[in-house]
Design a protein around this nucleic acid. Structure first.
Lengths: 243, 243
DNA sequence: CCCTATTCTGGCACTGAATGCCATACAGCG
DNA sequence: CGCTGTATGGCATTCAGTGCCAGAATAGGG
């Protein structure tokens, strides 16, 4: 059978990824994910069932195909590796949000599909974990102090916090994609600042301003020995990391 | 066909969950996950293929069946809800590690299977995300200060950090399950302390010891006005949360 | 002890995802 | 135009997963 699409647009013999993704999103949304078969997608796109499997690997993968590309570009950003490690990672996370915001046609309906189908949800979560792992590895190799054990712990926790804050803002947009993009970025920046305050001391306990200063604690004179000691030790425990 | 197992042990007509899980783990480990079919598991356990699907839902689910029970018991612990919210969550996370440590026969080979098969890995990651979501929801409902937005952000980030630290220690055990359990718990405690230091100020910025004390910063007299002001403002920015 | 209602199990058939195999169509190049 | 490597599509097959139904086991009341 001669494919009409071939003649309609240039010489692209290849499977038109974007068109297939859009068609699949539409079919999944209208008819449900499970009920839509690969034959349906093949019929709707003019691409054979066999070729769809070759290109995308599986039915789920069609939904996440462009997300894979996003991940690849974020990975490249990490490998370029220019600047403070923590800044590089924050910039990489920004790319992810940017990727979602710039393609609502796919990301928004995908979000609703993901919410409705546990399998797709798992898949989405796995994507998130891939970012987290990449960030964690990057940070562990370049940031932090102490032995490899503490460094990888701090890196992992930092990456987890970063991804969590990122997803927090991302989800709020996915739920209400109508809102101003500028507003989303504002909330994103404040969430990132929140993470930065928590992550800085984790990776560089020595830079903690509490440690860098000479401090004098002043308490009421009638506290009594017990209470005074308690407050002092509590204060020191809180301010100075133990290892 | 009369099932011999029926006569061999009590009156349990039910599918022996534990035995099936162990058999499946063995088959997957010996022959690979994909190559092992449900028929193989049925043949090895004396349970019909159809019943296996009824009990476990899918081939993957056999591997994670007992993990589901663990999650259920952790959920119950959260619902019991006794004590400081942060303590409750930390205790719940401890239950998870306990669950893994107490069943190495399943959890260790499963870890290796999960590492080798992307699909299983996604599944494992999804389990982790379920804990994280449960912790996050619990904390957001009970902990934190400010509006719902900041509270859920802080709760999410705290849960993410906690789970990440938990998994850090868990993985190190899964890789070398021979090590002393006591040693694992020691590292776990120190990782949890690490998270606690980071999480406390996130959830309760007002409790930050830096804020609770009267402080006097002492600097060399010859610093100069510019440098003195810079250090002071940097110190204050670092010590006092902005909102 | 028997009979009945309910639940559990296993066999059978069917759908559809996923993969291997092979023939064919196409693109680039001499 | 002919040759070569690659992309595609059709076909057949395996296997996960599900609906359906008949038969076995269990509980419970007489």
């Amino acid at each position: 059978m001669v494919r009409e699409r071939s003649g309609a647009r240039g010489a692209s013999v290849r499977v038109p990824t974007r068109e297939v993704v859009l068609a699949a999103v539409r079919l999944f949304t209208e008819g449900g994910f499970e009920t839509t078969t690969m034959d349906d997608i093949a019929a709707a796109t003019g691409v054979s069932r066999r070729s769809l499997f070759r290109r995308f690997g599986s039915k789920e993968d069609i939904l996440f195909a462009e997300h894979d590309e996003l991940f690849a570009s974020v990975s490249r950003h990490l490998e370029a590796d220019s600047g403070e490690p923590l800044d590089v990672v924050f910039a990489a996370a920004r790319l992810v949000l940017q990727g979602y915001l710039s393609d609502p046609e796919v990301t928004v309906p995908r979000y609703h599909l993901v919410r409705a189908h546990p399998r797709l949800r798992d898949r989405e979560v796995a994507m998130t974990a891939r970012y987290q792992a990449a960030f964690s590895r990057y940070l562990a190799a370049r940031e932090g102090e102490g032995g490899p054990e503490e460094r990888s712990l701090a890196a992992g926790v930092t990456a987890a916090a970063l991804i969590s804050a990122h997803n927090h803002v991302l989800r709020s947009w996915l739920r209400h994609p109508g809102q101003e993009t500028r507003e989303v970025w504002t909330r994103y920046d404040s969430a990132m600042e929140f993470v930065r305050r928590a992550a800085g001391p984790m990776l560089h306990p020595a830079d903690d301003p509490v440690r860098d200063r000479v401090m004098v604690a002043v308490y009421p004179a009638d506290l009594g020995r017990e209470e005074l000691l308690r407050r002092l030790s509590a204060a020191v425990d809180g301010a100075v990391p133990r290892h």
